[in-house]
């Protein structure tokens, strides 16, 4: 079985997964799984940016309080 991933498109992508006994088995990543992963990546990006802004604002407010 060809383990290479296609360059693009929504077709299922076969990838290799190693089981506990060390045997590589084919594992198909579906279009739905990729969509979910993309949404999670965006959510994580928003959280990280939000956290950066939060720390920035906390610093500004606390410096203002003690200034």
């Amino acid at each position: 079985m060809d383990m290479k991933q296609p360059a693009g498109g929504d077709a299922p992508r076969p990838t290799a997964r190693t089981t506990t006994n060390g045997v590589a088995t084919p594992h198909v990543v579906t279009a739905e799984a990729r969509r979910r992963q993309r949404r999670k990546n965006w959510a994580l990006l928003i959280v990280l940016v939000g956290l950066s802004v939060l720390f920035y604002l906390i610093t500004i407010v606390r410096m203002g309080n003690h200034g």
Binding site: A33, R36, R39, K40, A43
Partner: peptide, 9 residues
Amino acid sequence: HEAASVGDF
């Protein structure tokens, strides 16, 4: 099932 959604979190 490995692809948990944002809603699951």
